[in-house]
């Protein structure tokens, strides 16, 4: 259970508690109390059906520190419409026990696009890609060698994503149990 779901359940409980308190302790007429009850029940139903439309869309949160890259989708900036562009990643978190992929959205950056394009090319050649997202200070090389006034802001807090070929999976241990021989005495198939 994620924190988000727990908070939403808490919202339902608070709503029910407030309604119970009003019905028992307020000076409202029974008609008003009944209308409040109906309106609160409608709010429950509306909340219940409101969450599915929110799911599935990419998140603006930071990428996991290490992740397995599944797919990349890029929307380049468009000068005509003024769209700034975005880079979307679909990844699995290497630090999490769950294998459920999550979609992320990052602002378009030509460097990021180039790296993502290379990673996608490797994925197409069946080379699994691991990504690392690092947030840290980077030196803006374009401002090197310039006078002091122009160098202000040369160190920018930049969020960088890099990709590596995933390490090949280790072969199964030789000490693992071997399957029993088949009834006809033939050798068992290799694991």
């Amino acid at each position: 259970m994620t924190l988000g779901i727990a908070q939403l359940i808490a919202a339902y409980v608070v709503l029910a508690a407030l309604l119970a308190g009003l019905n028992i302790f307020s000076t409202l007429s029974w008609l008003a109390k009944a209308l409040l009850l109906i309106a609160t029940s409608a709010a429950y139903l509306v909340l219940y059906f409101s969450f599915p439309p929110l799911l599935g869309w990419p998140s603006g949160e930071d990428l996991p520190k290490r992740f397995g890259l599944i797919a990349v989708y890029v929307q380049e900036p468009d000068r005509i419409t003024g769209a700034k562009g975005s880079v979307f990643f679909w990844v699995t978190d290497k630090s999490s026990s769950t294998n459920v992929p999550r979609a992320y959205l990052l602002d378009y950056d030509p460097e990021l696009h180039a790296r993502a394009r290379e990673a996608r090319a490797k994925l197409q050649k069946n080379v699994p890609q691991v990504g690392e997202a690092v947030s840290g200070d980077e030196l803006d090389l374009a401002k090197m060698g310039k006078p002091g006034e122009e160098r202000q802001g040369a160190k920018s807090h930049k969020y960088t994503v890099k990709f590596f070929d995933a390490a090949p999976e280790a072969p199964p241990s030789k000490t693992a149990e071997m399957p029993a021989p088949t009834d006809d005495g033939a050798a068992p198939p290799p694991p």
């Binding site: 994620t2 988000g4 908070q7 929110l54 990419p58 949160e61 699995t92």
Partner: peptide
């Protein structure tokens, strides 16, 4: 609740697929 909204976003949804779509990625468990 506003702060907790973010952790819910990005995960796959179980609602009905669109009738026609452009496939980008596949992941099978």
């Amino acid at each position: 609740t506003v702060v907790s909204y973010s952790p819910l976003i990005g995960w796959p949804t179980g609602i009905k697929l669109p009738k026609r779509f452009n496939l980008i990625g596949i992941h099978v468990d």
